[in-house]
């Protein structure tokens, strides 16, 4: 994912100019990390709403939310009974299974997709979760 900073005025100005030039009246971009909405109205001031939910911390690391890929029941950790560390934060590999979404007999594994530090678990064990619901927060490691 490219790292567009929605709160950067130069990015907003660039997008607003491009919209005006193309005769497009509005643009809306939603990403897990934030939302940008630009409405170009003839004869009025361009309206811009920006909300950024994931801001870099003091170390310059942006937390990323791992979301449910579909509806089901949330199962943190392994179901095999192997010991799962509940102590957070902890480092995880890209392929490590952080938990599952259980749909009947099917377990859908969830992983970070990149080396990261698992910082928060955002859903309760066995909670019913919907598509896109936040399950974990991780901090990607370069």
């Amino acid at each position: 994912m490219s790292a567009i900073d929605f709160s950067d005025p130069s990015t907003i100005a660039l997008l607003a100019d491009a919209l005006t030039a193309a005769g497009v009246s509005g643009l809306e971009i939603s990403r897990p990390g934030g939302q940008l909405r630009i409405v170009v109205a003839a004869g009025e001031e361009t309206r811009i709403d920006v909300s950024v939910t994931a801001r870099p911390d003091s170390r310059g690391v942006s937390p990323v939310v791992v979301r449910a890929p579909m509806a089901g029941h949330f199962c943190p950790g392994h179901l095999s009974g192997s010991a799962v560390s509940d102590s957070l934060p902890r480092p995880v590999s890209g392929s490590e299974v952080l938990g599952f979404v259980r749909i009947g007999p099917v377990l859908l594994p969830l992983n970070a997709g990149r080396p990261a530090v698992l910082t928060k678990r955002l859903a309760e064990p066995d909670a019913l979760v919907g598509f896109g619901d936040p399950l974990f927060e991780i901090e990607p490691q370069s």
Partner: peptide, 13 residues
């Protein structure tokens, strides 16, 4: 109960 079933596109939700 309320459950999100998919993205914004009606075809996918």
């Amino acid at each position: 109960s309320a459950l999100c079933i998919g993205p914004s596109s009606a075809a996918k939700s």
